[in-house]
């Protein structure tokens, strides 16, 4: 395991690798309605989160370094250049050598992905926070719904 520090900046090549990893964590949907997390630009979100989360920074840098070593051992140009099967094989290999990498990255990917406007639209939601518009909710027919409860109480 390489020694990394929380101050080590992420390189452009590592950002490209990170984006590819994110696309494996949340791939695009078959109908293209949902984008992949990498294609959505979430590498920037993760990078931003890393800046104020030292543990995430260290774990991500270690994970990316480990991936890079696997890529080099295979003689490949980059993680991004690998075929999908090879990329998945490498990520699964990391679950042993860097056990915190994928769960932590998955957590932050989910957080960034499912608050993104494009994803909210794909979920058939208004692409906005809940406030200030809120949601319309029609009143229920409580008289009918509660009739069994009232009947039981009267017995």
């Amino acid at each position: 395991m390489s020694a990394t520090t929380t101050t080590q900046p992420i390189s452009a090549a590592q950002v490209r690798t990170l984006a590819s990893v994110l696309d494996e964590i949340v791939p695009p949907s078959d109908d293209a309605r949902f984008p992949g997390a990498g294609a959505l630009g979430l590498a920037a979100y993760v990078e931003q989160t890393m800046a104020h989360t030292p543990d995430l920074h260290q774990m991500t840098m270690q994970g990316l370094a480990a991936l890079d070593r696997l890529v080099q051992a295979k003689g490949a140009e980059s993680f991004t250049a690998l075929c999908r099967a090879d990329r998945l094989a490498m990520l699964h290999a990391l679950t042993t050598t860097e056990p915190a990498f994928l769960p932590t990255l998955t957590f932050h990917t989910y957080v960034g992905y499912y608050q993104h406007e494009r994803v909210l639209e794909a979920l058939h939601l208004d692409p906005r926070p809940p406030y200030p518009k809120g949601f319309e909710m029609p009143p229920s027919d409580l008289t009918t719904l509660l009739a069994p409860v009232r009947r039981r109480a009267e017995r």
């Binding site: 494996e24 964590i25 949340v26 994928l102 769960p103 998955t106 957590f107 990917t109 989910y110 957080v111 992905y113 499912y114 608050q115 994803v119 909210l120 979920l123 939601l125």
Partner: peptide
């Protein structure tokens, strides 16, 4: 939306 993903993750119901 986010809570669904995190709940599914902790329950082992929503994999990457």
């Amino acid at each position: 939306p986010v809570s669904t993903a995190l709940w599914g993750m902790t329950q082992g119901r929503i994999p990457w």
